[in-house]
Design a protein around this nucleic acid. Structure first.
Lengths: 152, 152
DNA sequence: TGCTAGCGTTCCCTTAAGGAACTCACGAGG
DNA sequence: CCTCGTGAGTTCCTTAAGGGAACGCTAGCA
């Protein structure tokens, strides 16, 4: 398919997509996040082709999102766990869940709920400003060129 | 490629991916968000194939993320704008930017900056709990089955 | 010795992405 | 009137990626 490489673009969205933009990657991440860590389990839970699963896992490990660790040496068995980099990607999943819950969940309601450790309540994520702590959504900002922008 | 349909899964992540999970879709959304609204401009800015661009735009319009509006009737000319549903998807882009800035920007620094209207400062998004307002990251929650979950 | 589990790899088929060329409607210029 | 240019797609061909099934490998176990 000779797909265009997103990783070289001067855009953090494109570079993030380069890491988890392939089909299945976010769902693999979700599964590892909720504790499905082994190849066989992942394949069955997702219904993904084994070939593609192997490719994706290798890519995610190579990119430092997952770590492949041995949980038994004889016989050699491995499982996949989140790195810090991968755990922070799961923040992204929470925001996807929020949007999906609002716009695609329909009658049945959200498939999963989050209970916040700090307050013990069922809740969801909201976006706040790192400086003033007030809500900060896509409509609440100006977009300006940063130091890593390419000169026009 | 006979790709698996994500839209039917009982998972808000999968259902969100069904809408913007194809390659290019998030970048199209980004462009429309920053004011690139016309077919020709999008094609040039992204370097995307015209065929794929047409497909993606149709899909995004059909799914209510973008609206196709006529800005000139003779000759007929159209532009694409964000719906409310689409604007809320841009929240997701902001979180992607945050992760990409942290983990992929490197030496040069972030390609774009956000200035928050409310405080006027350059800042970035952080995830907070909708109930207690304190930070809420992927590691700060328990995941529980919700009403829309499929019975195991 | 054969069975089974866990993890992949190989092979083939179909479909989607890239790219260039083509279409169509319209306005402008000569 | 004829031609050119522009915006917005569409068509066609090539190539590569996803799906699925079968195969391989290692090792514990009966």
């Amino acid at each position: 398919m000779q797909r265009t490489r997103f990783g070289d673009m001067a855009c953090s969205i494109a570079r993030t997509l380069d890491v988890i933009g392939e089909p299945w990657s976010p769902l693999i991440l979700r599964d590892v996040y909720v504790g499905i860590r082994r190849f066989e389990q992942l394949q069955q839970d997702l219904g993904i082709s084994r070939k593609v699963l192997a490719e994706r896992l290798r890519w995610l490990v190579d990119n430092g999102v997952l770590a492949r660790t041995e949980y038994s040496s004889r016989p050699p068995r491995h499982e996949y766990t989140l790195t810090q980099k991968g755990l922070e990607l799961c923040d992204l999943l929470m925001v996807m869940v929020r949007w999906g819950d609002r716009w695609t969940a329909g009658e049945a309601g959200p498939p999963v709920l989050y209970r916040h450790h700090a307050c013990g309540e069922i809740s969801h994520v909201e976006l706040h400003c790192s400086v003033c702590d007030r809500p900060m959504r896509a409509g609440d900002v100006d977009v300006l060129p940063g130091p890593g922008a390419v000169p026009a």
